[in-house]
Design a protein around this nucleic acid. Sequence first.
DNA 1: ATGAAAGCGCTAACAA
DNA 2: TTGTTAGCGCTTTCAT
Lengths: 340, 340
Amino acid sequence: MVQSHRRATIVDVARHAGVSTKTVSRVLNGQPHVTEDIIRKVKDAAAAVDYHPNMMARALVQRRSHLIGLVYENPSPSYVVDLQKGVLERLRDEHYRLVVIPIASISQHEADVVGLLRSAALDGVVLAPPASDSARIMQDLTTAGIRFARIAPTRLIEAGPSNLIDDVSAAREIAEHVIRLGHRDIAVISGDPTHASADARMQGFRQAFAAAGVPLPAHRIATGYYTYESGHAAARTLLARRDRPTAILAQNDDMAVGALIATLESGLTVPGDLSITGFDDSEVARITWPAITTVRQPVFDMAVAAADMVVAQLQDTAPLMCRSHRHELIVRQSTGPCPA
Amino acid sequence: MVQSHRRATIVDVARHAGVSTKTVSRVLNGQPHVTEDIIRKVKDAAAAVDYHPNMMARALVQRRSHLIGLVYENPSPSYVVDLQKGVLERLRDEHYRLVVIPIASISQHEADVVGLLRSAALDGVVLAPPASDSARIMQDLTTAGIRFARIAPTRLIEAGPSNLIDDVSAAREIAEHVIRLGHRDIAVISGDPTHASADARMQGFRQAFAAAGVPLPAHRIATGYYTYESGHAAARTLLARRDRPTAILAQNDDMAVGALIATLESGLTVPGDLSITGFDDSEVARITWPAITTVRQPVFDMAVAAADMVVAQLQDTAPLMCRSHRHELIVRQSTGPCPA
DNA sequence: ATGAAAGCGCTAACAA
DNA sequence: TTGTTAGCGCTTTCAT
């Protein structure tokens, strides 16, 4: 209250407590070799002058901003929310803050991404798809000395700490589920072609189809962009044909919901006339009627693990280099037997 | 490449270019009074030594971290996504970064929030409900010298830059819509009681009911928490009674979706047997079948405006102190005439 | 138009 | 156990 207007610094605290600044620093950082008595005195002084540490000064000298970035594209809101929750969960009691870095189109801005991260003074970043598949970004990150961990990369697994899922098997399994229900006229709504997951999931579908001798002609494949709208539009196209399919496999849940609504709008029933599957098990798949059969990819868990890998590197703990996460087929009400 | 390992600083650039550090700083910040010739030389030198500015040093001396926070509770994912998109939209070309600060329960942690923000070295924050209604938080923010702007506060409007919506009128209008359709047995699912919006919306409902002489007995009011699950549970309770309502007014869209699914699960049709309304017009209200009648609250626009108010304060531009945003009744397929 | 020197607030060596 | 001193990398008076 004596202070006119500027914020109190450790110098003020030191003077008030009658000790040196280094002692104040020691007390404030909980370092050893200080008497109980002095600790008391310093803490009282800090309270008395209303001291609050200046994080920027601390960051400068420690070369640590305590900022972690999350890089993602933005197609699916529920995916992004899961991602954020996971990273935040791990960072909660860690004194790191989360900076969100949505990039409109990573494939188009590969070269600029790390410049952006640099200018934000991030200590580390979690790379969500498709950034997690960019050799260029990982290269630049290494050059810049920014630690990173990857979520669901599909290639160059050795290139950095990775959280893996088996998109191919997951896709195969959900396709097998639909085939087991007797469907043979099956259409696919694929994801954003710039995301490698779209390839992997398609590959899994094809494996199941091939094994069962089910055809997948080109006119049964529609391209989406992992958004609700694109799934809706794709389904309309697929259903407009005279030989409409009896099942649609969407490559994520948002598109599946889009397909579901388009189907219901057209007067068909699900799963009576048409079965629909999603992918990821995001929240949207649970809040529809009928609820959507999907395959759970543990996005939240991967985000927790990825954040953990980043933190480990920053603390010089040996980071886990690679971790696999399990998927799980979740059968709900959007799939049923093939109609006669 | 001569440098062993440490990052290049302006000192390196200065030496390389044969000028002083101040000149380098001037060039890098685009300040006047430098010859074209020198500008060239400095820029070349910067590129040659692979210089990248250290944002923490800059932050320290400028007393600006260039970090903006977004404080929110987490009930509704789509609300949060809209909020984030809005703030990011305004910050996009502004050289500010967004730090997300979800708080589990603001009403329980009021006293700690600003400490958290302080320790994150934020220049400013956008306060979403219910933080935007906390006198304590605003007080602490002012003390800490952190600029802020509020989204949808309901009280103490003068206490800081605010983006207002008229929740009372919006609620009244949507209730009137349902009453006009002939409903008189109407139930309400209210929002989280710690959010002032729940009160305001209830007040609007009551105005409409009173004007039309429609009763609202206590057993027709169920308390939710702005989540899908709470809406689902509340609807189950409301529908379990013998004298079930013919319409349910939910105080946000997530709860309305929960109510919709619960209704469909119980074998009733919407809007045939029961009409349902939401609130906010978030994405979830569009991606159900039937789509949900709601009243649009421009969350995205408010977030853009709030971010703008924060940036304006940081740039010493006179900030707009108060801005009103319009709501709009959006009639979709979840409401229909009262069944006979 | 350019440069020298003094900080911003903090922590880390090194003394005492 | 405690204090002194020297930076971290940048911007900013104030000279020149």
